[in-house]
Write a protein that binds this DNA or RNA. Structure first.
Length: 255
DNA sequence: GCTCATGTTCCCCT
DNA sequence: CAGGGGAACATGAG
């Protein structure tokens, strides 16, 4: 599930439920902790209060008055606020507050939990990331894109190019911009590069109110199966592996 | 039993 | 060095 709009939804959810309250208890699955362990995490967070969380790409950063909790959701991560202590089988981290608990679940354990001690430490944890896809300007996007080679799909998926897009949002962006996923970005005209930026923003912004990537037909998110048709021209959609991921596209609209 | 899965990283080629 | 392909991670769903 988690691409940029989903993580932005989690950010708001975390802010609404967890900010400003003292941490009363911490439980963690050691497998999910990437640069700490359950004992240390508990000592670091106990008694602290979270302040306003922020997001960069698919990363959720939750600073406290002391250390910062950093979450990545992988492919199956999600947050749940519960008033009762019921540990779901996929629970990987539980933060207990006076009035409830924030549960981080991650079925496939492809996500993770980190601890950072400030901005410098955070940069180490996040690694090299491009600008957030929701905040990057058209000018900056164009400048970064012109410096790239390779397929449009691989470029948009690359978090060091722009941070936050995933398989679904990239396919939706390419379909709207009428660009074939295998198109070499060096061959893109200026107006195609502008279209990519514009449609990327539209896909993300339209998904934000849902807090997740929506299933609107014109976003292709509901059309990812054999025999489905292009919502624009009716042509049967094609499926192909591009940049290692399953891509759905319209062979007629996307060039 | 089989295939595929919204992410990232690492290894091997070209 | 930049890109592409494939595997791996762990656990399902169809």
């Amino acid at each position: 599930m988690p691409e940029l709009p989903d993580v932005e939804g989690f950010r708001r959810y975390f802010r609404r439920h967890a900010v400003g309250k003292p941490v009363r208890g911490v439980w963690a699955d050691p497998d999910e902790l990437r640069n700490t362990d359950p004992m240390r995490l508990r000592r670091q967070l106990a008694g602290r209060r979270f302040v306003r969380p922020r997001r960069h790409g698919k990363w959720l950063i939750c600073p406290t008055t002391g250390p910062w909790l950093v979450l990545h959701f992988g492919m199956t991560g999600e947050l749940h606020w519960l008033d009762q202590h019921i540990r779901h089988r996929h629970a990987r981290l539980i933060l207990q507050f006076p009035d409830g608990e924030m549960h981080f679940r991650d079925m496939r354990k492809l996500g993770g939990v980190w601890l950072a001690q400030g901005e410098d430490d955070l940069r180490q944890v996040l690694g090299p990331l491009g600008p957030d896809a929701l905040r990057v300007s058209a000018e900056e996007f164009d400048r970064l894109l012109r410096a790239r080679r390779g397929s449009a799909k691989a470029t948009l998926m690359d978090q060091t190019f722009v941070a936050g897009l995933g398989n679904l949002t990239v396919d939706a962006t390419l379909w709207r911009a009428r660009i074939h996923p295998r198109r070499n970005v060096r061959t893109l005209a200026a107006r195609e590069r502008r279209a990519l930026h514009r449609e990327m923003k539209r896909v993300l912004e339209e998904s934000l109110p849902h807090g997740l990537v929506p299933s609107r037909p014109d976003l292709l998110t509901a059309s990812r199966r054999a025999g489905s048709h292009c919502p624009r021209c009716g042509t049967v959609l094609e499926r192909a592996t591009v940049a290692g991921r399953t891509s759905w596209f319209c062979p007629r609209c996307q060039r």
